[in-house]
Design a protein around this nucleic acid. Structure first.
Lengths: 191, 191
DNA sequence: AGTAGTTTTTGATCCATATCAAATAATCGC
DNA sequence: GCGATTATTTGATATGGATCAAAAACTACT
């Protein structure tokens, strides 16, 4: 019963029971991939056709604005990452994804995911439950972005991204928060 | 085949085919409710146990901060509204919901929704698809809130909430955007 | 219709944070 | 390990929007 996909299976099982047929389909459709630090998991030039479950490592979803790279969010071990609208609606979008550390992923093609959705109704349930959680995070992020000082934004960030905070360069955190790196640097300095 | 629930049925059918049994369950579980302008659909004092599909009207999801009411978002005809985390996790949360106009809703209890999720797998699919759309809106909102001037925030708001913008008092829009009403008033004045 | 309450506008001032500039520190490739 | 590139810190200045205050314009209730 042992599989290299164990971490992924465990993840699924916190939301739905994994039947043997579903397990087998995942087994046959998921491909293990590795990315060196700095490598792109997805380039905004293309439509996003695959989703990655991160087994080890850290990635950044970002886009360009006025020649600067803005972090949209970060994903680490145990999370899926893709360019959401591009992946779900198979159209271009502004986001690229790169590895901030050497990263290993379980990679699923959109056509395979569609197959799974069509043949395993529990995948819809899985999706509903995980999206519900993301939903809550989004609301919190939006709230923490209005009526807050730069310092409060940073403190909220530290509480949410507690364990990966120190793995991220300052400039990327600043652009995630919508503040300049100079301001963030001063906030860090003052205590 | 005519039902007072027709608008709701039509909404569902843009995402999933509605089987007769599901239709009947909805028929028997959904209750029509009316709220006068100013009335609360949900009070933050309680756990949110019902979700409303708005047939006619306009509501606001808001919370209190420093004695002021902050708008989290607005919902109008053809949308579901509840206090998301409170409703989904059956715990208290900060949000209340009030009617900004006289409002008619189709009201579904959380226990009935759970019943539907447990007996009609297509409800999971419905939920996955609709949440996916919300997801996109959230991302856009977050982006439009960083690195933008108050004016750009307002312009983005107008494009998203195009048809209900004029039905909302200025102060509520300002708190939604995270700017003061004085600033919004000046933005409106200048052109 | 008239008064009280609420919402919006207008004005004056102030402050948090952006911007610009340059020095220092860290990281990377050879 | 050493220069080159990239990231962070520090300083000086500018500014968008907050805050405070009060007038004007709406709304609603009796």
């Amino acid at each position: 019963m042992s599989s290299t996909l164990n971490p992924l299976f465990q993840h699924f099982e916190t939301y739905i029971p994994l039947s043997t047929p579903l397990r087998q389909e995942l087994e046959s459709r998921i491909r293990i991939r590795s990315f060196k630090k700095g490598q792109l998991l997805h380039d905004a030039k293309y439509v996003c056709s695959e989703s990655h479950f991160i087994q080890k490592g850290l990635v950044r979803v970002f886009f360009e604005k006025d020649g600067k790279e803005i972090s949209e969010y970060f994903s680490a071990e145990g999370e899926w990452v893709n360019s959401p609208r591009s992946f779900m609606q198979q159209q271009q979008d502004i986001y690229s994804i790169d590895a901030l550390e050497d990263t290993d992923t379980y990679c699923l093609q959109v056509r395979d995911l569609i197959y799974l959705f069509d043949h395993f109704p529990e995948m819809d349930r899985y999706s509903r439950l995980t999206m519900g959680i993301l939903f809550g995070h989004f609301m919190e992020r939006i709230t923490s972005m209005r009526f807050t000082t730069a310092k409060e934004k940073y403190e909220h960030f530290r509480s949410v991204y507690h364990d990966i905070c120190h793995r991220l360069p300052l400039g990327m955190i600043a652009s995630y928060l919508g503040i300049t790196q100079e301001t963030l640097s001063r906030i860090r300095a003052e205590k």
